[in-house]
Structure formats: structure tokens, C-alpha cells
Design a binder for these strands. Structure first.
Lengths: 153, 153
DNA sequence: TTTGAAACACGGACCAA
DNA sequence: TTGGTCCGTGTTTCAAA
């Protein structure tokens, strides 16, 4: 579905989407027009989902990062979409995955500091209907954090 | 450090950075030139770290997502930067955080399928010097996944 | 592949609050 | 100091020929 050109285009753009079409074209070994058409197609097909600015977490004062493992009650599991809906509404939760195994969900949560997490934990997350147990794991520092998917092949 | 205008600009751009300066300006209640100057400043100060395209993981055939908790040996912990260096070199590892508490690291890993993860696990991750124990947690589905930091205030 | 019109980024000059 | 309003130049997009 993706040929070598597409992959190279995506590799460039998921590193820096501010580069011009001709710049990308030169880098992947195409001329400007066909490269532009490919990028359009990748956008139309949803393969390029969005083009966003990445903001430095620390520089805007969001110093706390916590992973939370959430278990639902038996009743909560039968109303999973309610839980999902609630989670999507929390700006502090950047990621939430349904997990295989003993814990039901894995969340990555970002707040100003640990006190702010504590408030989010007690006032918001623990009050979501169906939540049985939450295990919080505080991240101390970041070794790697990227949005680049591994597209090499 | 960030006033109301800056915050609004960042909110818009971390959702869609393809919008034009005048478009952003109108949205935040500024005119084009001062808005442009602010965006430049945010880039220069590193608050806007990068501008990237987000690629749909499933549509490019990366179907497996795994969280791995890694513990190091006592010796490994004294050579933490070697471990960090190795991790940064693995394209499959999108995120890696140093954790507080019993597990040393939390990794988010993306591969084509579970078999590919298995290979990465045995052939690569478990062979990194200093690694003592790895607990793998497979993610089944995604409830939320965003790069938008919570900037409301 | 080339071309061209329209839109846009970029950045200076200058004034007003 | 920061925003507003001009202005021009050069680049980029995008859809034609």
C-alpha cells in the first residue's frame, strides 16, 4: 500500500512538517508536482492524520507526568464506553489504552505538579463511575519521547 | 511567562499547525503581524519544539503497541546513560521514562504485530546491558491518544 | 515537466495606547 | 513595551497547460 517514496515522505514529514513540498521532493528523489500529489493522497487517505505543533511540556510549566493503571468494577466493564467518554473529556489525560491482562487501562497524565495530579486523582479520576482501583506511577524524567513511528522497511 | 494570547495561540497550533498566521490571529483576537511575532518568539524560545505530521499507526500497519516495564541490575543503574543511549537508538521505542518506585523504566513500544514485538523483545531489548527484568503489557485498543498538552488556565 | 495566478510568509517602517 | 496598520518582496501552493 505504501511504496518506498511514500515511506520516505512520511519519514521526513513526521520529523518536520514545515518543510516545503520541493524540499521534501528533493529529499525523496521526486520532482515537486508528483511529490505534492502524493502528500495530498496521504492526507486524503488519513495516513497523515494531522499536522501539529509540539509544545515543550516543561517550558509551559507542566512538570508532572504520571502513568495510572485503572481497574474497573464488573459493572464498569459492561459500561466501558461511558468510561471511555469520560476519559476523552479530561485534558490532563493524553493517552489511554485498553490493556490485556490484569489491569484494564493504562493512562498517561500530565499536570502542573504532583499536587495538581493529586487533585485530579481524588476529585476527578477516582470519581468516574465504574472505577475500582487506580495505581499511580510517577515518571521522574524523560529519556525519549517522540511521535515518529518506525517506518523503516 | 505566557499570557492569555500565547496560550490561545499554542492551543490552536498544537491542534492544527497548518493554519495560516492571519487565521490564528483572527481566532485569538490579534491582527496578523503581532500574532506572527508571537509565534516566532514561541519558536525561538523553544516553547514550540517542532512542527510535525502525525501518521496513523494502524493505517501504516503498525498494529501492536506494548508497554514494557524494565528493571536494571545494580550495575546497570550505575551506567544509566548507556541504557538511555541504547533506548534512544531503537525506533520501536517511542517513549521511555525513568520511574519512581519499584520499576526503573516505562517504555511504549510500537511494532508491526506481536511477533515483531517478540523478536524485538528477545533479540534487542533483553540484550541491552544491565537489563534485569522486563514486564510486557500489551495494549488492545486506543481510547485516547493526543499530543495536545492541557494549557487551559 | 513547465508555467502562472493567487495566497501566503516574512519582515521593515511607523504610529498609537 | 506591545499591538495596529500599512507596505513590498519572495516563496509556496495548486491547478492548469
Amino acid at each position: 500500500m505504501l511504496d518506498e517514496f511514500d515511506r520516505k515522505i512520511l519519514q521526513v514529514l513526521q520529523r518536520d512538517s514545515s518543510r516545503t513540498t520541493s524540499d521534501v521532493a528533493e529529499h525523496v528523489g521526486l520532482s515537486q508536482a508528483p511529490c505534492w500529489r502524493r502528500i495530498q493522497r496521504l492526507k486524503n487517505e488519513g495516513i497523515i492524520r494531522a499536522q501539529v505543533s509540539l509544545v515543550d511540556r516543561k517550558l509551559v510549566g507542566l512538570n508532572a507526568q504520571v502513568f495510572a493503571q485503572v481497574k474497573l468494577t464488573a459493572h464498569g466493564r459492561t459500561h466501558l464506553s461511558d468510561f471511555a467518554e469520560a476519559i476523552r473529556g479530561f485534558a490532563e489525560v493524553l493517552e489511554c489504552y485498553v490493556m490485556m491482562g490484569s489491569t484494564d487501562f493504562m493512562l498517561r497524565i500530565v499536570t502542573k505538579d504532583i499536587e495538581a495530579y493529586e487533585r485530579f486523582f481524588f476529585d476527578t479520576l477516582s470519581k468516574v463511575p465504574g472505577v475500582q482501583e487506580i495505581t499511580s506511577m510517577v515518571a521522574l524524567s524523560e529519556i525519549k519521547s517522540t511521535t515518529e513511528l518506525p517506518l523503516a522497511n
